[in-house]
Nucleic acid binder design. Structure first.
Lengths: 240, 240
DNA sequence: TGCATCTACTGGTATAGACAACTGTACTTA
DNA sequence: TAAGTACAGTTGTCTATACCAGTAGATGCA
């Protein structure tokens, strides 16, 4: 576990070890860690060294401390960030509206060629196509289409999709989400989008495409969201 | 400077003090700090306490360390982030294109009402209106209009604008840029935009508006950029 | 002159110990 | 029963010290 003769710093070995426990799911979000003193004793190292390791993990967002109580595993980071940036739910709530979601399509289809390319699978290989309408106060705001390779993620059901898709995926694959890229562009509504969103064909649309990758660089999903431009703006805040 | 009887932790006092030096410009980007040992001696505190303070500032992006050499003041953070997210220059270069910029308007005008509102000034108060066209490989990609209160920033010239606007502003105001908000939306080209960008009126446009605030919460500028939707997409990457 | 070496400095890692501040639980007391 | 108290355990802060590793400049030699 900890090798004092290694050229790698002790605190760094501890960082990597704990990170591993979290990534392999042996420590789950909300779990408490052994106390700093316990780690120090267990590995026969100084408590300050343990603190250095834990401080790194806290800064990295893996853990959080609670004075007088203990140290705990934090929620997963990317999911947080994805939320922070694109969560329809959060956005709408902050504007005082009531968000909801309606599943309007769930099937396995042969991948359209540009999707197969982005998911790095064979053309026409089977993919889940999950269509949702996002509403705020009951008004349609966006059409969201999610594509996931059916050979990669198995056993998706309408049930799963309605609840925690990410959780199901990470559990099944035992590989964590590593990176997400979002591309925003301006476009005009297609016939299909116009129907679902209750607008004119050709009306301005904000297209947001998110590509999510796993830790081993496998593309996991492509999510295409079409937002009504008259009702939705995308906001980012940068703080010093 | 450092008050050992204060209820505030010593390392925290040191963090705030150094942060103050940087924000007041007494320490400029690239400047070297006294060594950790020197700080420890000067304030009669332990070197580990000094390290704790400096580590915080390093994590916060204010400083960076160089082993065997010293500790230095980092470049300003927001400017970096603004660059990372919206820099036309960076974006175009990464796509292998040659970015350039053409100043097409520089005048002082009475603020349009929505601008005066966002800059928190009187309606019709004078503002600089700076119009630029952004080009890639000589092709117009975006029209960018910047509004800055003329009562806040004085003595702007066409010269200054062509070079380092931010630098000039921070020097003159002695207040740092604190926060920036970006709003992206989809729209269609107005007559003016169509002319400048050489597209049809009504063609899809990606509107990006950036509002920058100073540390004391004064709005500094409003930048409205209109990008050709057929040529420009906005990308964000989230890494774990 | 040019190269190697020495030296004095920097930050990086690690120890062992001390006390403070905070929290939850178990116990005592009115 | 309800409120207060004591205690044990946690993280937070701080000290004094030691040695390692990297860097730059001075020194000395061929």
């Amino acid at each position: 576990m900890i090798d004092k003769t290694s050229p790698l710093p002790i605190y760094y070995q501890l960082v990597e070890w704990i990170k591993g426990l979290i990534e392999r799911g042996e420590l789950k979000p909300g779990d408490s860690l052994p106390s700093e003193r316990e780690y120090a004793e267990r590995f026969s190292i100084s408590r300050m060294t343990v603190r250095q390791a834990i401080t790194e993990l806290v800064n990295g967002g893996y853990l959080y401390r609670q004075k007088g109580v203990g140290t705990f595993v934090a929620e997963k980071k990317i999911e947080q960030q994805l939320m922070g940036l694109t969560s329809f739910t959060e956005d709408m709530k902050s504007r005082g509206m009531e968000p909801s979601s309606k599943l309007v399509g769930f099937e396995i289809v042969p991948a359209p060629s540009y999707i197969s390319h982005q998911l790095n699978i064979m053309e026409h290989a089977p993919v889940y196509e999950i269509k949702r309408i996002r509403l705020a106060d009951g008004i349609p705001m966006a059409l969201e289409k999610t594509y996931i390779s059916a050979n990669l993620v198995k056993g998706l059901t309408e049930e799963t999709v309605q609840h925690s898709l990410y959780h199901h995926i990470e559990n099944q694959l035992a590989i964590k989400i590593e990176e997400a890229t979002q591309v925003l562009e301006s476009s005009v509504a297609t016939q299909q989008e116009a129907e679902y969103l209750n607008i004119q064909k050709g009306a301005p649309i904000l297209l947001i495409q998110r590509n999510t990758k796993l830790a081993d660089d496998t593309p996991l999903e492509v999510v295409k969201s079409s937002y009504r431009a008259d009702r939705y703006k995308f906001m980012i805040t940068l703080k010093r």
